[in-house]
Amino acid sequence: MAGVKTHTFFVDMTCGGCSGAAIRVLTKDNLVDKGNIEIDLDKKTVVVKSELEAKELEDVLKKTGKDVKFITQT
């Protein structure tokens, strides 16, 4: 897939339910495939492999009502 980047976000998730919500908003209308999402509850990070721009992914993650900050994109 051309232009796929790995985006890392800080998302203030505190439990499984919150990370489940983050996965659900990302996979809604199959925006991102579940296999391209990695969540680390301890580090409170969400790593997404996608062609979408970081800004768009950030806006989607913000729908969870959680504090979201863009960290890196490789």
């Binding site: 439990c15 499984g16 339910g17 919150c18 489940g20 009502g65």
Partner: peptide, 16 residues
Amino acid sequence: RGMTCNSCVKTIEDTL
């Protein structure tokens, strides 16, 4: 469905 802790509850209550 999907809430498992109080922070999920608080987030929903705040947002709504």
